[in-house]
Design a protein around this nucleic acid. Structure first.
Lengths: 174, 174
DNA sequence: AAAGTTGGCTAACAGCGTTAGCCCACGAAC
DNA sequence: GTTCGTGGGCTAACGCTGTTAGCCAACTTT
């Protein structure tokens, strides 16, 4: 299920900027946000750190583009929507498959001005589709997100959330 | 509702370390984690930054103590437990009253080794009390946490989560 | 041929967490 | 009553961070 072209956050980037973004993503997924410094990123591309500023105004801007990219990819990965249970399953799987990207795109403030208009709504719409009601959709999204972040951060006593907890959550929203 | 003395995370700290911790908390709540640097904290106490290391081994250790403190205080603030609805209401209120402390204590990894044994369980037990079932408790906790962090990060289109979404969530768990 | 754009470079700065090494005040021990 | 350990401060400095300034080569457009 692919994202409408006009929502592609990399649409306005130069080819070189797209390469930088891809490298940033690679470092992020491989080593985490902490390890993604302007210098390590520059090393990955075999250029000097200040040269990165030819493509992104700041590290924060780069972060924003990564977040936008994640919004798009997760939105795609979760489609097409069938049942609540299937949506939750897919959401969980894709988030845990890309934990760093997920965390980046879902925690901390989101610079909406830097997002293609409509992308955020589009990425959230599967929950609306699955539940049929905006508030139910928000509540489900929040619940699933809560489970995922607690799981990623190892906040459950068992490490990952027990299957039974996931089932319980799905049950409440089905 | 007060925390058992043996779970008090500041129990083993020297008086001076407690003062440092209190100052750190003040800066954190006033200006956020980003602004809480070893130097700004030292300024707050009218000492030099390296002197802080007489009381805490690292900034990470200090962060851990702040998280432990938050666990204790939030655990207290949410008691005594009556209904699911009341628990959710209290949880939400106390979290939004201390957003920085809440975020600090609930996101990112938690250094359990530095926590008084039992504190984490104690802080989570209200959810068990309210739901009567461990998996229901975890699911509810995750859901409420998800709502709170999305709210704190301004991730809902309206800024805060709509009342109706909170009601929806409570309804599913009541 | 001229001009502008793209994408690189080095040198440097301020702020970050942190370490090393020194010093002084105070309470206990010989 | 002096010695000694300890608690709590200090300055100087290091390596790392994001970022700026200023320069330069190549390529494209006029």
């Amino acid at each position: 299920m692919t994202c409408p072209e006009e929502l592609d956050p990399t649409r306005l980037l130069t080819p070189r900027a797209r390469e930088v973004l891809a490298a940033a993503r690679a470092v992020l997924e491989r080593q985490g946000w902490e390890a993604l410094t302007m210098r390590t990123l520059a090393d990955e591309l075999d250029i000097a750190a200040p040269s990165l500023y030819k493509h992104f105004a700041s590290k924060e801007a780069l972060r924003g583009q990564l977040a936008a990219l994640a919004l798009k990819e997760f939105g795609e990965a979760v489609r097409p929507v069938t049942t609540v249970a299937a949506l939750v399953r897919r959401y969980r799987d894709v988030a845990t498959a890309h934990p760093q990207l997920y965390r980046l795109s879902t925690s901390g403030p989101l610079d909406r001005a830097a997002l293609p208009p409509g992308l955020e709504d589009w990425s959230g719409s599967p929950f609306l589709e699955a539940t049929g009601d905006p508030h139910r959709a928000q509540a489900l999204w929040a619940a699933v997100h809560g489970m995922v972040v607690l799981e990623l951060d190892g906040r459950f006593p068992t490490g990952a959330a027990p299957e039974a907890t996931w089932r319980e959550l799905v049950r409440h929203f089905s």
